[in-house]
Amino acid sequence: MPDDLYFFPNYNLLEMAEFYQAMYPNFDMGNVKNLAEILKLNLKAKIKTFSKGMKRQCALICAISTNADYMFFDETFDGIDPVVRNLLKQIIRKQMEKKPTTIIMTSHNLKELEDICDNLGLLYKGGILFESEINSINTSMTKVQFALNGETNQEALQGLEVMSYKKVGSVATAIIKGGRGSIRAKLEALNPIILDFLPLTLEEVFIYEMEVLGYEFNQVL
């Protein structure tokens, strides 16, 4: 399912589904009808009359119903409201429960992938910059907020692999490579006034990985 969707001119969803059916031997036409009903899409209305979000829903319904072993989704939830987005995620999950399917999703909006993906890869200039299981990202990277009794500075983090360090007032926020255990031990030894471990979002992982590569627009501007 591409970012730039394509439907045959003047086709409705049913006709598009028939095209997919002719191409994919395991295509499930019943699923199309079922999902169209759930998403309240008129099967016989011309797709060109649909909104951007509805067109994306049509494409997703057709793609899911192919029952292919591998599916590629590009900017899957672009233009879709949060309610339908959650519904589509459920549909995708259900599909994966129904049949072992590998789904690869690409998106610039990483938030929408957090709760659905098992693995994450960061693409940069045509190559994979970073690749990890979502769960292990939390164990391999730690976001910590702390304030020391005296002056808080980065020297306190010596010996740790700091990927990002920012200080606002006397409170510093750092992203450090490594698990919580070793970082907590190191910082607690400094008797901090504040020591909080914050959840790390995929966007932050992406941004800090990019910063490591010198991909910092903040500094440019």
């Binding site: 591409p2 730039d4 969707l5 394509y6 191409m23 994919y24 292919a68």
Partner: peptide
């Protein structure tokens, strides 16, 4: 057309 050629070539044929 780019969109149509992407679409057709994504088919299992």
């Amino acid at each position: 057309k780019k969109t149509s050629t992407d679409f057709m070539n994504s088919m299992p044929i």
